[in-house]
Deep mutational scan, measured.
Amino acid sequence: ASVAVIAAGTQGNIFATSALRSMRFLQILRMVRMDRRGGTWKLLGSVVYAHSKELITAWYIGFLVLIFASFLVYLAEKDANSDFSSYADSLWWGTITLTTIGYGDKTPHTWLGRVLAAGFALLGISFFALPAGILGSGFALKVQEQHRQKHFEKRRMPAANLIQAAWRLYSTDMSRAYLTATWYYYDSILPSFRELALLFEHVQRARNGGLRPLEVRRAPVPDGAPSRYPPVATCHRPGSTSFCPGESSRMGIKDRIRMGSSQRRTGPSKQHLAPPTMPTSPSSEQVGEATSPTKVQKSWSFNDRTRFRASLRLKPRTSAEDAPSEEVAEEKSYQCELTVDDIMPAVKTVIRSIRILKFLVAKRKFKETLRPYDVKDVIEQYSAGHLDMLGRIKSLQTRVDQIVGRGPGDRKAREKGDKGPSDAEVVDEISMMGRVVKVEKQVQSIEHKLDLLLGFYSRCLRSGTSASLGAVQVPLFDPDITSDYHSPVDHEDISVSAQTLSISRSVSTNMD
């Protein structure tokens, strides 16, 4: 405001104040949320940038038409019409005319000016109207692209899951042992070998009828009888010197917790746990005396209480009078009846079946994303299906024409109403129809010849004498029936064969 007042002088105070007050009108834009329509302006900018070359070309040609039209109309009207006294007036008329506004304040009066105005109007309006069409088509394409992008975003994750499931299904095939990355992934998420051994031990116990592997080994086996189970490696608790092959000598807290839970599941009659010990102070733990958990001091820290809870689970003690015997301790020893080589084939089979199920689920979810969402998608899918159906029908028609023997030239002739090819031409065609016709002709010829021969033979049998045999009239074959199959017997006289037959029969009768 200060700059405006200084620039306008003393009389500019009122002007500056009114100008600043008129800017209050811009507050109405906040009512229509114009300040939060950044996406709309961004869309407009992207459309203009995408079609910038077309817009520049249309505007450039339109500007050239405007300059030439205004100049030529000015030359034609400057002497006869006072409205075109300057080139600026003519340029104003050209702008209003070519933009199809047409105020009518300035019009050419001479015939030359009117002809020039009409010609440049028809030429220039087309170029001035091009930017509107370019922007409209650009907006339509952009909206369609955003629509497809939205659908693509919805299909991206199911497609990625389907590709991942397909690759993992491919890589978990037993015949592709060189693909090891997927197996490394499952090695990292699978439970430890100790848990798998416990699982298979329970399965084997159920197969043995509820007997433990130790009891199965204690059962008497006759001499020479084959053992029911192959000899396997035996594993004891981590306190002993022997372990399962492939295990580490260090046992983690999870393994100890699972070991304690498995020992508690063996039965309360074979294992008696004394009350857990509780320390009397955060600094020292008295293991010899058993106290109640309700006497825990409230001033303990979080670490002390955590250690106390761990001691409740991981440090059970047995009383002296209830101490288990050596046999019970041997039964409680952890027996590992299986090795990694025995378990891994079954584990890989389970993983393979899981990968198949996940692949089928991913495939079903991806197919669900291909379903249409709204009416536009339904129409688009219907149009695509219609085009596909037309293509299939056209391909089927082409194959039928190839089989029947109607080529493209014959199809055009039928469409024009011309006469089709004759039967002889159809026979000569190298097509399925021509071959079928040729075979039918040959079969008819053979059938006719057989009928003639059978009739001749029956007449010979009825006559009974050589004289009557020679008097029999043998009809000749019709050459038209034989089609294109020409037998060497067709052109010979059958009477010669009949005479030869009669001579042979007379000779045979004389010999008798």
Results as ranks from 00 to 15, higher is better:
A165G: 06
R168S: 01
R168H: 05
Y170C: 08
T172S: 04
T172P: 10
S175C: 10
A177V: 09
A177G: 12
Y178S: 10
L179R: 11
L179M: 12
L179Q: 02
T182I: 02
T182N: 08
W183L: 09
Y184N: 09
Y185D: 12
Y186C: 13
P191Q: 08
P191R: 13
S192C: 02
S192P: 07
F193V: 06
E195G: 11
A197D: 10
V203M: 06
R205L: 11
N208H: 10
G209W: 11
G209E: 05
L211V: 13
L211I: 10
P213R: 07
L214R: 10
L214V: 07
E215A: 12
R218P: 13
R218G: 08
A219E: 13
P220L: 08
P220R: 14
V221L: 11
P222L: 05
P222A: 14
P226R: 07
P226T: 15
P226H: 13
Y229N: 06
Y229C: 13
P230R: 14
A233G: 15
C235S: 13
C235F: 13
R237W: 11
G239A: 04
G239C: 04
G239R: 00
S240G: 06
S240I: 07
S240R: 12
S242F: 10
C244R: 14
G246A: 05
E247D: 08
E247Q: 14
E247V: 15
E247G: 11
S248T: 04
M251L: 11
G252V: 06
I253S: 11
D255A: 07
D255Y: 14
R256C: 04
I257S: 11
M259I: 07
G260A: 04
S262Y: 11
Q263E: 12
Q263H: 13
T266S: 06
S269P: 13
A274G: 15
A274E: 13
A274T: 03
P275A: 04
P276R: 04
T277K: 08
P279S: 15
T280P: 10
S284I: 09
S284N: 10
S284R: 11
E285K: 08
Q286K: 14
G288D: 12
G288V: 15
E289D: 14
E289G: 05
A290S: 15
T291I: 07
T291S: 15
V296M: 15
Q297K: 13
Q297E: 12
S301N: 03
N303I: 07
T306S: 06
R307C: 05
R309L: 07
A310G: 09
A310V: 14
L312Q: 14
R313T: 14
P316T: 10
R317G: 11
R317S: 15
T318N: 03
A320P: 15
E321V: 02
D322E: 15
A323S: 08
E327V: 03
E330D: 04
E331D: 14
Q335H: 05
C336G: 12
V340L: 09
D341V: 05
A346V: 09
K348Q: 15
I351V: 09
I354V: 03
R355S: 10
I356S: 08
K358M: 11
K358N: 14
L360P: 02
L360V: 13
L360R: 11
V361G: 06
K363E: 05
R364W: 02
R364M: 02
K365E: 10
E368D: 02
E368K: 09
T369I: 03
D374N: 01
V375A: 07
D377Y: 01
V378F: 10
I379F: 13
E380A: 11
Q381K: 14
Y382N: 15
A384S: 14
L387V: 10
D388V: 02
D388H: 07
M389K: 07
R392L: 02
I393S: 00
I393M: 02
Q397H: 06
R399G: 02
V400M: 11
D401E: 13
I403N: 02
V404M: 07
R406Q: 06
D410E: 05
K412R: 04
A413V: 14
R414P: 07
K416M: 10
G417A: 08
D418V: 07
K419Q: 11
G420V: 06
G420W: 14
S422T: 09
S422F: 11
A424T: 07
V427A: 07
D428Y: 14
I430T: 10
I430L: 06
S431R: 03
M432R: 09
M432L: 14
R435H: 05
V436E: 06
K438R: 10
K441Q: 07
V443E: 15
Q444P: 14
S445T: 12
S445Y: 12
I446N: 14
E447V: 15
E447A: 13
K449R: 03
L452Q: 15
L453R: 06
G455R: 04
F456V: 14
F456S: 14
S458T: 13
S458L: 14
R459L: 10
R459P: 14
C460W: 08
R462S: 01
S463A: 12
G464C: 07
A467D: 08
A471T: 10
V472G: 10
V472L: 06
Q473K: 07
V474L: 08
F477I: 09
D478V: 04
D478N: 13
P479A: 04
D480Y: 08
D480N: 15
D480E: 08
D484V: 03
D484N: 11
D484H: 07
H486R: 10
S487C: 06
S487N: 10
P488S: 13
V489G: 11
D490G: 09
V496F: 05
A498S: 09
A498P: 06
T500M: 08
T500S: 09
L501I: 04
I503S: 04
I503M: 15
I503N: 10
S504P: 15
V507I: 07
T509S: 05
N510S: 05
N510D: 08
M511I: 14
D512A: 03
D512E: 13
